[in-house]
């Protein structure tokens, strides 16, 4: 071992931190090297000097100060003040809070979804009503496509299902072409298409709730037609009308005028099954 290697290990040798073989090697070098041996003696002298230095005395009152700080820290922590203890949440309170929170989120989502669906429905009906006079077939496609419209076999409607009361014929030569079942966000309703020899088309929708939202931003006029309060909406040269007929609401699209609306109200009121939804 040379001096450089020995001096690198000298502190570890002095402090007895070397493994036996390394310590033996250093020891062997020190026997032959007075310079390195002198350095080791310097370490010894320094160590003795350090062992004699005065031991500082810890001032009194340190623990009291620490204890006061700990007490202050303890009081600052949530739940450790008097008010904090009163407000300390129990598991039940946490669970209740989470439940209420989840309910509010769901309610918010449901409300948002409902509003969103209503806005979308108003937009669909706006297109439907706008197209109906000029292109009743295309208008029909809008509703059928959007709301999964499917033809109904009126003879096969089971008990408990929404069965339309639409008659086979309407005044002024209108004959039933088809009846569809529509799954709309607001309700399940039926739509029956009538057509006369002149090619005029009428659509009759039956639903359980009033659906003014179908008319969107269009002006709705309330008027008595055949003694029945009716909502009337102008569609270019045609009218849409909605009224209560027994437990249901009926909406007709494509009437020429108020007189036709009154006539339909009268006719359908006479046709409806008494006291049946």
């Amino acid at each position: 071992m040379n001096c450089e290697s020995a001096r690198d290990l000298l502190s570890a040798y002095f402090d007895q931190e070397l493994k036996p073989d390394a310590a033996s090697a250093v020891r062997a070098h020190l026997v032959t090297c007075q310079d390195c041996a002198r350095r080791l003696a310097e370490f010894q002298e320094l160590s003795a000097l350090a062992a004699d230095i005065c031991e500082p005395e810890v001032p009194r009152g340190v623990w009291s100060a620490i204890e006061s700080s700990l007490a202050r820290e303890h009081r600052r922590q949530p739940g450790n003040t008097r008010w904090g203890r009163l407000m300390k949440p129990s598991r039940v309170a946490i669970a209740a809070t989470l439940l209420i929170g989840a309910s509010l989120v769901l309610l918010g989502y449901w409300t948002w979804r409902s509003l969103d669906q209503h806005v979308q429905m108003a937009a669909v009906f706006d297109r439907y009503l706008g197209e109906f006079q000029e292109h009743p077939q295309q208008a029909q496609e809008i509703l059928l496509t959007r709301y999964g419209g499917r033809p109904m076999d009126l003879q096969a409607v089971g008990a408990g299902q929404f069965k339309p009361n639409a008659p086979q014929d309407l005044p002024n030569g209108f004959e039933r072409v088809e009846t569809y079942l529509l799954d709309m966000p607001c309700c399940t309703c039926t739509q029956t298409i009538y057509r006369n020899h002149a090619g005029d088309t009428l659509a009759l929708l039956e639903h359980r709730e009033e659906q003014r939202m179908w008319f969107g931003n269009r002006t709705v006029i309330e008027a008595q037609c055949h003694g029945q309060m009716t909502c009337l909406v102008q569609l270019k040269d045609q009218l849409a009308a909605s009224w209560k007929c027994g437990p249901r609401y009926l909406t007709v699209i494509g009437a020429r005028n108020v007189e036709q609306v009154s006539e339909l109200i009268s006719f359908l009121d006479a046709q409806r099954p008494q006291d049946k939804g």
């Binding site: 001096r7 690198d8 290990l9 502190s11 570890a12 402090d15 931190e17 310097e42 320094l46």
Partner: peptide
């Protein structure tokens, strides 16, 4: 590293 740093400390202190 402890040994080499102690070497430095002892030398500089002296």
């Amino acid at each position: 590293t402890v040994g080499s740093r102690l070497n430095q400390a002892r030398s500089q202190l002296r």
